[in-house]
């Protein structure tokens, strides 16, 4: 048996070897996707430590269940879905911060905010983390990942209208925060 020494093994080869339990192939897959997935988990976590825990648990699951990956979507999507599910599970088990579910109308007309944002990644991340956990999850799932409210409702075990309501509140909160930061930025620049 030869050690895997080729420079660019295909992802398919890596997957096969990782399924067979080859640690080297698993490590290569980890190196390929861990950075992106840590960025994802950070959006759902409250702290960097929690995000790292989520990443660790996610990749253990990835390698334990890799044989169930059928290849009908890119591996990155499959891993990302595991990271999101693990994040939501962490949220459920570690926190019991269930916000009151006010079902209110979701105003789609307020989507266009006209904010001239100069805010960086870390600040945006901080804003999302400051949201209540459920709002944080709903905002990430809808605005960033692109899930529908129906899908989000199924994932979080809430109704579609609750998802819309929570998203609306999260959005309003973030909008205010963005406007405030934007204003501070302009004051800083002009001043």
């Amino acid at each position: 048996m030869k050690i895997l020494k080729s420079k660019d093994p295909t992802e398919e080869d890596l997957i096969k070897r990782a399924i067979a339990g080859k640690r080297e192939a698993q490590h290569l897959l980890y190196q390929k996707y861990a950075g992106k997935m840590l960025a994802v988990s950070k959006r759902y976590a409250r702290t960097d430590f929690e995000a790292e825990d989520i990443l660790q648990d996610s990749f253990v699951k990835v390698f334990l269940y890799l044989k169930s990956f059928k290849g009908d979507c890119p591996l990155e999507f499959w891993i990302k879905r595991i990271v999101i599910n693990t994040s939501l599970k962490h949220q459920r088990s570690n926190r019991h911060l269930m916000v009151t579910e006010h079902e209110e109308e979701w105003d789609e007309a307020s989507e266009q905010d006209g904010i001239d944002s100069q805010i960086g990644y870390e600040e945006l991340l901080q804003l999302v983390r400051e949201l209540p956990p459920r709002y944080q999850a709903v905002f990430n799932l809808y605005a960033i990942e692109g899930f529908s409210h129906k899908e989000i409702g199924e994932m979080l075990d809430i109704t579609e209208s609750t998802s819309k309501s929570q998203y609306s509140r999260a959005r309003a909160s973030l909008r205010q925060a963005l406007l405030r930061l934007n204003q501070q930025y302009h004051e800083k620049v002009s001043g």
Partner: peptide, 21 residues
């Protein structure tokens, strides 16, 4: 939607971001 909505800001801010673990 046109313009910088809240979603646009966050989506573009997080797009393609990688954090070395």
């Amino acid at each position: 939607k046109k313009g910088q909505s809240v979603e646009d800001i966050f989506r573009s801010g997080f797009a393609g971001k990688e954090t070395p673990p």
